[in-house]
């Protein structure tokens, strides 16, 4: 455990109060099991999503900064955790930009002063829930909590955009920390090239044609690789892929039937909790079939056959400088 000592300032965000309440419930259950203390910011407001920044940037930054200022007043370590990727990005970006751009910092604080608030840019560290889980808790400790391995379930780890971009320290194109977490839980993780592609974001409201195509790409890829479920960490990704899956099927004549689950839900299952206490059932595409895969002996080989030819050339290793034989 890090210097935070397991205590964090918690920003749930609007989605977790409504459309993503399953995420909220499962997060709280898992946090409890992992001895993480989440002190919710009192009277937090919306992060503005992507919309407020399109209307007027300074009020948008000020809106976010109110949360930062309130968070800084909340007890505990100066670590602010957000489970929603959009909230996470907005909080983090505002924090970083205020520290980086003097004029912005000055103006935002001038606006905050109208509400008798002040925020010292950079005094908090803004982090995503997944980061807390893999970095601060760590795979080893999570592995020790697993009582019901997810063996047999094939999951597509879907990160979406905002947890890895623009600059969060993780691989911006092909992160693997969610993959490792799922492997730790016993699941079979598919190589998922679309793992950081866009779910469509607000395009469902602006142009359905564009949005459905983006959703289709992800679902198609997951289906191509035989995923039983897509595991996600963002309410917007979950919403778009889950709620619009039927529309996509109707639009493109496809028959995708892939449940979209929060990683905390699967952690809870692996920790031996019941689906009910983790908010299962609120997904539009039912997770029942995927959950039924758990415990199967050997998943059938659905990966592309690997050529093991003696003429084959060595393959560069993905991590580190060495090579491996294919």
């Amino acid at each position: 455990m890090t210097a935070s000592n397991g205590a964090y300032v918690y920003y749930p965000g609007c989605s977790l109060q409504a459309s993503a309440h399953a995420y909220d419930i499962s997060t709280k259950r898992v946090a409890e099991r992992l001895n993480l203390t989440f002190n919710e910011i009192d009277d937090w407001n919306c992060c503005g999503a992507t919309e407020f920044f399109s209307i007027n940037a300074l009020p948008a930054y000020s809106l976010v900064a109110r949360n930062l200022a309130l968070a800084a007043q909340t007890g505990g370590a100066p670590e602010l955790v957000a489970p929603c990727s959009a909230c996470y990005l907005n909080l983090r970006k505002t924090n970083d930009y205020m520290a980086k751009y003097k004029k912005l910092n000055q103006q935002v604080n001038q606006a905050l002063a109208a509400g008798n608030l002040h925020y010292n840019a950079g005094s908090l560290r803004v982090r995503h829930l997944l980061d807390i889980v893999v970095q601060d808790v760590g795979y080893e400790k999570i592995g020790a909590e697993v009582t019901r391995s997810l063996q047999g379930m094939r999951v597509a780890p879907y990160y979406g955009c905002l947890i890895v971009r623009p600059d969060t320290g993780y691989n911006t194109e092909y992160p693997t920390h969610l993959d490792k977490l799922m492997t730790t839980l016993g699941a079979t993780v598919i190589d998922f090239p679309m793992k950081t592609h866009c779910c469509g974001g607000h395009m469902t409201q602006i142009s359905e044609a564009v949005a459905y195509e983006l959703i289709r790409r992800i679902l198609k890829n997951a289906a191509d690789y035989g995923a039983d479920a897509i595991v996600t960490l963002c309410p917007m990704c979950q919403l778009n892929l889950d709620v619009y899956q039927g529309q996509v099927n109707r639009t493109f004549g496809t028959d995708f039937n892939i449940p979209i689950l929060y990683f905390t839900q699967l952690m809870g299952i692996a920790f031996g909790m019941t689906p009910q206490e983790l908010g299962f059932g609120s997904e539009v595409v039912s997770a029942d079939r995927a959950l039924a895969q758990i415990g199967r002996e050997e998943p059938e080989e659905r990966e592309r056959p690997k050529r093991k030819d003696k003429q084959a050339l060595p393959m560069p290793a993905l991590n580190g400088g060495g090579r491996s034989e294919s």
Partner: peptide, 10 residues
């Protein structure tokens, strides 16, 4: 490998 978008190594 430093440009993951090009998939070298994967």
């Amino acid at each position: 490998r430093r440009i993951p978008a090009y998939g070298y190594g994967r």
